[in-house]
């Protein structure tokens, strides 16, 4: 019996080790390069563990002539702007889709799903031309508008799942006690679904924070660039500054990793509930 337990743990941890090496190896590469001084970066053959780890690259990323801090603020502004707008819109709509019976509900829900079917590359051309015609190109607004195209459907879908998980009896009781539908929604439902709203906000921030295609296309001036495009500053035509690039990458990962750390439970719930319930 004891032998069986030892065997069970041995196999479990062996498989786990293989899985984690596969999963974590690129992170190790990123971290290792970010801690290497220039003379260590180009040694042949390469090695994973830096001999003299130091933070030089990180200081460089924030140092003189570097736009990183600016890009960081731009990303923060655009991602949180889009997140707030989508939340404001999606809280109402997703409740409507989850609860209210109105004609065409199924049709409109299908439209939201349909909007996930085409690549963003398919609507970026007309959007680009519209932005050009309205002189919005190269502005934060254009980027936020671009982000709404994919984050509104995601936000509505996500939040709808959270609303569905709240028992309907609560609102009905409130409405029998004289609340209007809207009052019941604001006073009863929204407070209950607050964790879900937090998870949705985190997910929206996560997808807008790392968006690349719109950011690459709509923003032309350096001062308005966001991080995913900005890190290509370190990629030269002939030579890439891998140390700085990886240090910047670590810094870009940190906010989303922290978000996930704190909201993991709700986020996983939000991602999987629709599928689990069929």
């Amino acid at each position: 019996m004891k032998r069986k337990i030892v065997g069970y743990y041995f196999i479990t941890y062996l498989l786990l080790a293989i899985l984690l090496i596969f999963v974590l190896f690129p992170f190790a590469v990123m971290l290792s390069m970010s801690l290497k001084a220039p003379d260590e970066q180009f040694t042949s053959p390469p090695y994973l563990i830096p001999h003299r780890p130091n933070l030089e690259n990180y200081f460089h990323v924030f140092g003189q002539g570097s736009m990183f801090a600016r890009y960081f603020m731009n990303s923060l502004l655009v991602a949180s702007g889009a997140t707030f707008i989508v939340l404001g819109v999606a809280i109402f709509s997703s409740y409507g889709y989850a609860r209210l019976l109105f004609p065409g509900r199924g049709f409109f829900l299908a439209l939201i799903l349909l909007s996930q079917l085409f690549p963003l590359a398919a609507i970026i051309v007309p959007l680009y031309r519209i932005m050009g015609a309205t002189k919005l190109i190269d502005s934060y607004i254009s980027l936020i508008i671009g982000y709404l195209t994919f984050s509104v459907p995601v936000g509505v879908w996500f939040l709808r799942g959270f609303f569905l998980s709240i028992p309907q009896e609560l609102e009905e009781a409130a409405m029998i006690d004289g609340c209007s539908r809207f009052q019941a929604f604001i006073r009863i439902v929204v407070p209950l679904v607050r964790p879900g709203i937090g998870a949705t906000a985190a997910y929206l921030f996560f997808i807008t924070w790392q968006e690349f295609m719109f950011a690459l296309t709509f923003i032309t001036s350096e001062s308005k660039r966001t991080l995913p495009v900005g890190i290509f500053d370190f990629v030269g035509q002939y030579e890439t500054n891998w140390g700085n690039l990886m240090a910047a990458s670590v810094l870009i990962c940190i906010p989303v990793f922290v978000l996930f750390l704190f909201l993991q439970q709700q986020l996983v719930g939000g991602l999987t509930q629709g599928a689990v319930k069929g």
């Binding site: 109402f92 709509s93 409507g96 109105f102 439209l111 939201i112 909007s115 609507i123 508008i145 509104v152």
Partner: peptide, 21 residues
């Protein structure tokens, strides 16, 4: 009520997604 609740997202969806499409 249903119409009012979903109207904002529908407007955005049609202007920003289906019209460009």
């Amino acid at each position: 009520a249903g119409c009012f609740f979903i109207l904002p997202s529908l407007v955005l969806l049609f202007v920003l997604v289906f019209y460009p499409l």
